[in-house]
């Protein structure tokens, strides 16, 4: 425990960096995927292109994406932007489909009723379709957040990794510093659980109407699956 007790400030600072590296891409990705998801839901052609493409993006190994970013963006190799941009790509890839599906799941009768009440397209989107998409959307955001938190550590290989530093550093010390490695892993897991829990709570707070009924789509359990690449 000595090593851990001696390094608490370092661990906390690295946790802060880690969260920032993981969650800023979630926010940016969400903002980008809302219009993209809307477009994918609106036009069948757009959907036919965007859904497979985003699925494809998601299959690119994270390390490859991290390494490609400086080439694509013209950034320095050690710039944290590389990691954040790559994670934004994953987030968008995940959420475009979620949002398109969530919007498609809004009952046609409700959309029709909104139009008949006198909503214009944009008003209807923000007042009716988006709120109804929230349960599915939150499920998608939870998956993206948890997956980003685990992926940030991989960024350490290109020098930007938040808590990933301790994993790599602990392994490269001779003999390996297991306290350091375990502390890094444990903190990553704890951060993922806390963020996931907070998002689940936020989702509940945003959707009081779903609590009154049983078996409605969304609010799902599937965000438990942590995607490791």
């Amino acid at each position: 425990m000595n090593w851990i007790l001696d390094h608490i400030p370092d661990l906390l600072a690295a946790s802060g960096d880690h969260l920032q590296l993981a969650l800023i891409p979630v926010v940016v990705g969400l903002v980008l995927s809302l219009p993209l998801g809307w477009v994918a839901n609106r036009w069948t052609v757009a959907r036919a292109i965007m859904v497979p493409v985003s699925g494809l993006l998601y299959t690119i190994p994270s390390l490859a994406l991290f390494v490609m970013m400086p080439l694509l963006l013209g950034t320095k190799i050690l710039d944290p932007i590389n990691v954040q941009a790559a994670l934004t790509v994953y987030t968008v890839a995940l959420l475009v489909r979620s949002i398109a599906d969530a919007l498609a799941a809004v009952p046609e009768s409700v959309v029709q009723a909104a139009s008949a009440m006198g909503y214009r397209t944009a008003g209807r989107f923000f007042a009716v379709e988006l709120p109804l998409a929230v349960p599915v959307l939150v499920a998608g955001v939870r998956v993206a957040a948890v997956s980003n938190i685990s992926l940030v550590a991989v960024g350490q290989i290109i020098g930007v990794g938040g808590l990933g530093y301790f994993l790599l550093h602990g392994a490269q010390t001779s003999p390996p510093n297991f306290q350091e490695i375990i502390a890094g892993i444990a903190l990553i897991v704890v951060l993922a659980l806390i963020v996931d829990g907070l998002l689940a709570l936020a989702g509940r707070a945003l959707t009081p109407w779903t609590r009154q009924q049983v078996g409605r789509a969304g609010g799902g359990r599937r965000s438990r699956a942590v995607v490791v690449k």
Partner: peptide, 21 residues
């Protein structure tokens, strides 16, 4: 259309209520 519709009441089958309100 939107202006016109705000001045005409519309009731549909299954009510078409907004579930989140």
């Amino acid at each position: 259309p939107a202006t016109l519709r705000r001045g005409i009441g519309y009731v549909i089958q299954n009510a078409g209520l907004f579930p989140h309100r």
